[in-house]
């Protein structure tokens, strides 16, 4: 696959290309000094670009086509992943995957949205947009985990629940609503991590938990910046402003007390070093699981209710 370069990354790639050319000819010329200068320049440029990302640029990174997806993380972080299919009612939704896995010595149920890499796999995965049976499969697996006292990890990466005809017929709204209610009272620890896009109800449908984490370059909001732009500005052109207004990045959500922790990514995004990204996330997940496993199930449920009960801002 051709490398995807985002518009704001172009200066870095241009400089890197120049550097590569210089290295090619450096055998004949004595330019080691100049190369060193350019190398330093590349590093400084990377730092300044990636540390000062706008909200819209982070949205772009969250959607980067080379970014690791749920199954990539599962294969990099866990052993013995045993995928389980189907909602026992209608079918098997490919936009949500799940199954048992071992992460270090924790036996967990791990569930997440799954996007595709190319046209074919994206059609297979419905671009990571679940139908109702996806949410119902997720809930079935979560109840299975509860029955056998296994903690749950959910990974969120969706442009939204699928807005289709059949999705409505089969109760997209009911499926999501049911998950919110049931997840809030599951008697096992739940760790939620947003690994890419967290678009509205389609994300929240597997997003109730005891700890909510966000990778550094992800977004989570009530609506996508594009849709927000089209509704409030009545044009698709205001996505950057909408992203700013929605305050949808990980630091924003930490400030709004919606998430508990930001998981750092390699410089430039998780796709720049997938193994490193996965190993950082793995370490964090294990820490969280260890903490949560000490808490009694009833207490855990009470704390979860209280956690979501506190969210919001109002004046009385």
């Amino acid at each position: 696959m051709a490398k995807t370069i985002l518009d704001f990354e172009k200066p870095i790639y241009e400089l890197e290309e120049k550097l590569a050319e210089m290295k090619k000819v450096s055998d004949n010329l004595d330019i080691a000094g100049e190369i060193k200068i350019i190398e330093d320049k590349v590093e400084t440029l990377k730092e300044s670009i990636y540390k000062g990302l706008t909200r819209w640029q982070r949205v772009q990174l969250a959607r980067h086509p080379e970014r690791p997806y749920t199954l990539d993380y599962i294969y990099m972080m866990t052993q013995n992943f045993l995928e389980l299919h189907g909602d026992r009612t209608f079918g098997d939704d490919k936009a949500i995957v799940g199954g048992f896995a071992k992460i270090d010595d924790h036996k967990v149920m791990i569930i997440g949205h799954q996007k595709g890499r190319d046209t074919k796999s994206n059609l297979f995965r419905n671009f990571g947009m679940p139908n109702p049976e996806g949410y119902r499969k997720a809930l079935r697996l979560m109840k299975l985990a509860e029955k056998f006292h296994r903690p749950i990890i959910t990974m969120i990466d969706t442009p939204g629940a699928y807005p289709g005809l059949e999705a409505e017929e089969r109760g997209q709204a009911e499926a999501i609503a049911r998950n919110l209610l049931e997840m809030s009272r599951l008697k096992v620890p739940i760790v939620v991590v947003i690994v890419g896009e967290g678009a509205s109800g389609g994300a929240l449908g597997i997003g109730i938990g005891d700890r909510i984490l966000m990778l550094e370059n992800t977004w989570y909001s009530v609506i996508s910046p594009e849709s927000c732009s089209s509704i409030l500005w009545r044009s698709w052109e205001y996505k950057e402003q909408a992203a700013e207004a929605l305050r949808l990045t990980a630091p924003d959500l930490l400030e709004q007390k919606v998430i508990d922790r930001i998981v750092p990514e390699p410089l430039g995004g998780a796709h720049k070093d997938q193994e490193l990204a996965a190993s950082i996330l793995k370490k964090v997940l294990i820490e969280e699981l260890q903490q949560l496993e000490k808490i009694k199930p009833e207490k855990l449920v009470d704390m979860r209710l209280e956690k979501f009960g506190k969210m919001g801002a109002w004046i009385e």
């Binding site: 919110l180 209610l181 009272r185 109730i208 009530v222 929605l246 305050r247 959500l253």
Partner: peptide, 14 residues
């Protein structure tokens, strides 16, 4: 109200 509105779905359902 951004993500805080979304979280009201969680709050009420819980």
């Amino acid at each position: 109200e951004g993500v805080l509105s979304l979280m009201q779905m969680a709050k009420t359902s819980a």
